[in-house]
């Protein structure tokens, strides 16, 4: 039987996790009653759903439909003149949602605020490009990497991947080495689909060694003619990986255990 692999998250996973492992959490503290962050919260009033301080920066959770309003308030009333970064996190597998964050900077107070909102899979978000021009590129990147549509963006187009690319690479469902389309992209584009057989599939095995390839590699120390067979009759062997032998110690029939008893 084939091993079950979850399809909704194909990223790296720990091969072993202790049964009783409970991940701790980075301490979150309440926003102090006095100070800059408290002022920001009072200015935002009802726009902020939840707020706390995590590792020195205030995190504000807001409603996704109000993102433009919140940003406008933060920029104009609280002095957050720079949007350092904005991007998304894919929580589709867990919650069916994307988490978007905006990292803002106030240079007069030297304070940073992170605004977080969540949207459903096929929802769009309002562009903050009229407020922060840096959002022009950043929102295009979000669209490219996650497929999140941004309303009222002046030029919403793929930015990092080519225009004719299929799929959004930073989704958790997208494997790191790419899908079928990605693996043949350059061959299809340059030579056409009929050359797939000539060129062959990509080599994704990082441990592959071609000892007898005289087409591409020369020999150090002694020269061999081009494309000569230097295997000296040795047949090709596939790499064999050693298998871990698991002993079930719970059964009483274990030979080693019997001996020990």
């Amino acid at each position: 039987m084939r091993k079950y692999v979850p399809k909704d998250n194909v990223q790296g996973k720990s091969y072993y996790t202790d049964r009783f492992w409970v991940a701790p959490r980075v301490p979150r503290t309440e926003v102090e009653a006095e100070g800059h962050f408290a002022q920001v919260l009072t200015t935002l009033a009802k726009l902020a759903k939840e707020a706390y301080v995590e590792l020195g920066q205030m995190v504000i959770h807001i409603d996704a439909s109000q993102n433009f309003e919140v940003m406008k308030t933060l920029k104009e009333a609280c002095g957050y003149t720079q949007c350092s970064e904005q991007s998304a996190v894919d929580y589709l597998a867990k919650d069916g949602e994307f988490e978007l964050f905006y990292q803002l900077l106030n240079i007069t107070e030297a304070k940073r605020v992170r605004v977080i909102c969540r949207i459903k899979q096929n929802e769009a978000i309002e562009s903050i490009e009229p407020l922060y021009k840096s959002a022009n590129f950043a929102e295009r990147e979000i669209f490219d990497m996650f497929g999140i549509k941004v309303n009222n963006h002046p030029f919403l187009k793929r930015i990092l991947m080519p225009d004719d690319w299929e799929g959004h690479p930073l989704l958790k469902t997208y494997p790191m080495i790419g899908d079928e389309f990605a693996s043949w992209y350059e061959v299809d584009k340059i030579f056409g689909k009929e050359y797939r057989d000539v060129i062959g599939p990509e080599n994704r095995d990082q441990a592959r060694i071609e000892r007898y390839d005289t087409k591409r590699f020369s020999r150090v120390g002694y020269e061999v003619p081009f494309d000569a067979d230097i295997s000296a009759g040795e047949t090709k062997t596939d790499i064999e990986y050693s298998e871990t032998v698991l002993v079930d110690y719970t059964k009483n029939s274990g030979k080693q255990l019997d001996e020990r008893r």
């Binding site: 091969y15 991940a23 959490r25 980075v26 920066q57 940073r112 992170r114």
Partner: peptide, 20 residues
């Protein structure tokens, strides 16, 4: 297995030669 940091999120800015 690799280290397991606690749950949470962090944004740390540094001044690289090009900027933040």
């Amino acid at each position: 297995q690799g280290m397991r940091p606690p749950k949470g999120e962090v944004y740390v800015p540094t001044e690289s030669p090009k900027g933040e």
